[in-house]
Every structure is written in C-alpha cells, then in structure tokens.
Write a protein that binds this DNA or RNA. Structure first.
Length: 594
DNA sequence: GATTTCACGTA
DNA sequence: CGTACGTGAAATCC
C-alpha cells in the first residue's frame, strides 16, 4: 500500500493510518530523490510517496520529525545532507552504511555491499551498470521491483532510477527498512561486552554529524591566515614565474651553505642525502628527528630543517590551500568520514586533521561568538580500564591524573609510568619501556591480559571486535608478501610482519573503543545542541570544538561536560571508570591550552 | 597515468 | 621493533 501525499498534514495523517502515532518509538525509512523534490517513506505497515518543491518536501519531513520524532533509516547520509542544507537537523537515525561498517569492518560501503551482506549474497554476482539486466536471475517479477529473482539489487535502482519518482523512492525506502531489520538481528547475535545497538545508533549519528561538519565548516579568519602563511612561507606569488623565483630564493638559503659541492634538489630525499654526505654527514635517511641531532654538525642542517618547515607550509598549507578550501564566508571545509579503515576514528580532508599548530591562531570564532573547546583527558588508558575491567586500573581512573596513582603503584616516577602504560597499549618493547612493563604486568594483570589477547588474535588473524562490537579488519600482510616473488620469505620478515599485526590489533582495540566513546559523546552533544545556534565545527579524535554565540558559552560548556557523563555511562555501563574533559571557552583555537 | 616512497603534520 | 590518518613531490611502475 502506497499513500501519495502532497502536504505535511497529509503526511502525518498517512503515517497515523499506518499506526505511527505522536512520539511512538518507530523506525521510518527515508529516501530523498533528485534535488529534494521527491521523498519516499517506509513504515512497517505501509509506504508514503511525497512529491513537490524541495522546500515543501523538506518541510514535510521536518513536520514528521516534530510530530513523530522517529528513528530515520537511510542507506547513506545523503538525506541528512539535503535536509541540513535546508537547516533541518534531525535527531535519531539508523545509517545502514555506518552499521554495515560496524558489523563487517572497513570503511568502503555502498548499497550493493550492504544488501549482499544482509542477504548472504556474493557481491561478485551482483549486476553491474551497463549490463543488460536479462540474466538468469531476472526471470519474471519478484516480490520487489528493485530486486531480481536471484535476490540481487537491480543495477538501475542502485544507480538511482528511483530518484525522480516518489513511488519508487518509497519502494527504495522499503528495502532500507528491510535491511534495518536484518542488521538489528545481526547485531543482536554479536557476542561482545559492550552494546552493539548503542554503537549502531551513535555511529549513525556520527554520519549526520559528518554531513553537518561538511556543510558548516570550521571558522577561519582569512586575514589572519593570510598573514601567518605570508610570514611562514612568503607572500602570495603573483604569477607562475614569481612562484618559481620564490622557490629558488628559498632553496638558495640552504644551498649557500654547501658552495661548490654541486647542485641538489631539496625536494628529492636522495639528493638531500647526497648533499649531506658531501658535507660530511652520513645518515640512513633525512627525516627531521634524525637531522635534529645533527644541527651542530654543519650549518646546512639547520638551514635544511627550516627550509622543510617553510616548504611544508608553502606546498600543503599555503595560499593555494587557503584559496581552495576556505570559502569566502571564512569557513574551512573538507570531506568528513565517520570511520577510518582500522579502528573507527573519524577522518577529514582539506587539512582539517593535520593543521600545523602555527596556523591555529587563524581558526577564530566569529565576532560575538566563541569556541567551546573540550578534550578528553588520558582517554586511551581510561578506555583500557573500562574494556578490560582491570580493577586496579579502574581505581586509578578516579584520579584527575591517572598516571599519578599508576606511578605510585609501580614505584617509579610519573614519566616512567606514562611511558609504561603507553608502551603496553602500543606494543612497544624497546627502550626504557621494557623494564616498566614488568611492573605493569604485576600491577595490572587483567588489563595486560586483555592487550595480550588482542595481540595474539592479530598475529593469528582471528576475528576481533572492539568493546562496542565493531569488526577490526585484519590485513594479512604475511600472505601479501607471499605474492611478491622478488622478496625472500625469511623467518625474520615473517616474524616482523606477525609482530606488526599484533601491535595493530592491540592498538586498534583500545583506539577503536576510544573512538566509539568519542563519537557517542559528540553525537550526544550534537543532539543536545539541535535547536540552538551552537554547532560542532571540529572533531579531532579526542577533541571537540563547538562554535557558539557568546551568550550561550557557559551553557554549552556545561552541556559538553554533562554529555560526556551521559555517553560514557551508556557506553561503559557500570564499569566505574571515570572519564574527564577539560573545557575551555576561547576566541581562537590557539588560545586553548593543552 | 596510476602507484609507491619519502617526508611530515595531527591525534 | 608504537598506531592511525591526509597531503604533496618525486620516483617508479605500467
């Protein structure tokens, strides 16, 4: 049954006919077509097809949000982007792609992968675009117009043939609802200590957050940015010839320290290595940390390191970067991914996640606005305490500075304790960490056992999930080496690869759980800020920046703190672990003191 | 033209 | 012989 509607009241009325009452907990699938002029909704009892102007359709969805406040189910974040562009920010959602990544790991996702996974189909058999859809799998009408008799999605539907047709959009939404049911079932089967359902919800919310981060952007004062870049890398080049001239001038500052030794391309590491050797400095590579120790050996080293710094700004974060990624409205925008390939951290492009500290003064709140900047303190060891349940480590989290009680327990200085804890989590065995690790083993055996189990799972390429239930993908680097005929497979390289996998798995369990907590926190903050002027404008692994009107600053700061308690309470229910955040209200990112 | 290597910024 | 990511330049592969 498909109800065709042409207004907000009609839409809500149609939903009521399907048993969806005001504020009943219900999932409604949503597909929004071309330009937002077409929307299809699906409930368990019936479908709704809506068509009109973009403003109309957006308004109808917004009305449904107000009236029903459902959990919106969609294939991907696209509807959230469309709605956000029209300033409609929804509350709860279920993103099939995000949940797919939880269940199956990795970051690549599309409708075909999602569908094949829940239907138990082989993706390689799926029809591809351009192929005539007349194969054996296509005999007669199936139960759904988008699904072939062999169970695969029809290529033209995957490509978006439904987008101009409200009725078809409703059918597309119907499939989303079907996938949602299957994902719920699959999550219910997972055997993990955490709460996969809660993870699915917060990972879904992170997708909306990404859509909004892409739209809103990070406030940047272009004038300040321009000044900083100019002081660090020189003025904006007026022409290509001018740019070449500037580069040559920068290079000359280094090369003048090695007169008569030949000419070297500073952008070519092999050339740089040769240059240094001529100057009497022999290094295996020319990395900064290695050259740092050689600063005194020859003046060219210091000049080179300074050159590298300026070159970095000039090439990656120079005027070109500013022009390309910062809009005329003073917003730095890049694509956001809610999940990286390994542990599930958020990633961002356009330099949002690796902006050099020197440029942070340019990240400024608008006049009359402020940044509420918050970061999680010592998140990884606290998360380790929670996921492992090590009572001693849990006890240590009651301190503002977790490393203090750990140091007391290990009977070492605080810096040693810190190194020991980090070494355990990262799988480091060399250096000064080795000795302190012995103490860790005695003091926190449960946490250490947890890490060792992860390490072993990684070495053995066994399936491993984070506390919340995300599958950690295992890349079989040993097998990959087998395919390289040039490389001898000696025992050393095999054991090195195994050790690397162990470290990867060890770290991914901790980093992954931390990423999940962070996203749950960010999602909670986001939900709490809907309806206010404040917006999350940056997520940086353990740090959150909210752009807020000055008058709302204190309230937002309190919200950020409260939301951490809420999120961690849901995440690590009853773990007794204390999570802490340092919240600051600042005008510029550079003013936030770590 | 696409992929790999080196380097370096962030957490 | 601590992990992850994105980016740019040059070398390298095809």
């Amino acid at each position: 049954m498909v109800a065709v509607v042409d207004g907000a009241d009609a839409l809500v009325r149609a939903l009521r006919d399907f048993g969806v009452e005001r504020h009943t907990p219900v999932a409604i699938a949503l597909a929004i077509g071309t330009g937002g002029t077409v929307a299809g909704l699906a409930t368990e009892r019936g479908l709704v097809a809506a068509g009109g102007s973009t403003d109309d359709v957006v308004a109808w969805v917004a009305a449904t949000e107000r009236e029903v406040h459902p959990r919106w189910v969609w294939w991907s974040r696209e509807p959230a982007s469309v709605l956000a562009r029209h300033d409609v920010r929804l509350g709860a959602c279920w993103d099939l792609g995000a949940v797919h990544r939880v269940i199956h790991g990795g970051w690549r996702v599309d409708e075909v992968r999602i569908w094949c996974a829940v239907q138990g189909l082989d993706r390689r058999d799926a029809p591809v675009s351009g192929q005539l859809d007349l194969g054996a799998g296509d005999a007669g009408d199936g139960p759904h117009p988008a699904v072939r008799a062999d169970g695969h999605l029809r290529a033209e539907w995957v490509e978006g043939s439904w987008r101009d047709d409200a009725d078809a959009a409703a059918r597309w939404a119907q499939l989303a609802l079907q996938v949602h049911r299957r994902q719920l079932h699959r999550l219910g089967e997972l055997d993990v200590a955490g709460d996969p359902m809660a993870l699915a919800r917060s990972e879904s919310a992170a997708e909306i957050l990404c859509a909004e981060l892409e739209l809103d952007g990070l406030p940047v004062d272009v004038t300040v940015a321009d000044g900083l870049i100019t002081s660090l890398a020189g003025p904006r080049a007026g022409s290509e010839a001018n740019a070449v001239e500037q580069r040559a001038a920068r290079d000359a500052e280094v090369l003048r320290h090695v007169p008569g030794l030949g000419t070297f391309d500073l952008r070519n590491p092999a050339d740089v290595k040769a240059m240094l050797r001529r100057a009497g400095i022999d290094v295996p590579d020319t990395r900064a940390w290695r050259l740092e120790a050689m600063r005194e050996a020859h003046p060219v080293v210091d000049a080179l390191l300074q050159w590298r710094k300026a070159e970095r700004i000039a090439t990656t974060f120079g005027h070109g970067w500013l022009d390309q990624h910062v809009g005329v409205d003073g917003r730095l925008r890049g694509a956001w991914s809610s999940t990286d390939g390994a542990a599930g951290r958020m990633t961002a492009q356009a330099g949002l996640h690796n902006l050099p500290a020197e440029l942070r003064p340019a990240v400024r709140a608008d006049p009359g606005w402020v940044f509420v900047q918050a970061d999680l303190g010592q998140i990884e060891p606290r998360v380790l305490a929670a996921v492992s349940g090590d009572r001693g480590l849990v006890q240590a989290t009651t301190a503002d500075d977790l490393y203090r009680p750990v140091a007391d327990r290990l009977r070492v200085e605080r810096p040693i304790a810190k190194v020991a804890v980090l070494a355990a989590m990262y799988g480091q065995t060399s250096g000064t960490a080795g000795q302190a690790l012995q103490g860790m083993e005695r003091a926190y055996p449960v946490a250490m056992q947890y890490l060792r189990d992860a390490d072993r799972a990684g070495r053995e390429a066994r399936e491993l999930r984070t506390f919340g239930g995300r599958l950690i993908p295992m890349y079989d680097t040993v097998a990959e080496r087998d395919h390289d005929p040039d490389e001898a497979i000696d025992d050393r390289s095999v054991s090195a690869a195994l050790a690397a996998r162990g470290r990867y798995a060890r770290n991914a369990t901790v980093q992954g759980a931390a990423a999940e907590l962070f996203k749950a926190w960010a999602a909670t903050v986001r939900a709490r800020l809907v309806g206010t002027g404040a917006r999350i404008v940056l997520c940086l692994h353990d740090e959150l920046i909210v752009h807020a009107p000055e008058a709302e600053a204190d309230r937002v700061a309190a919200t950020v703190t409260t939301c951490l308690d809420e999120a961690s309470g849901r995440w690590f229910r009853g773990s007794g672990v204390r999570f802490v955040t340092d919240v600051q209200v600042v005008q510029s990112w550079a003013d936030a003191k770590g």
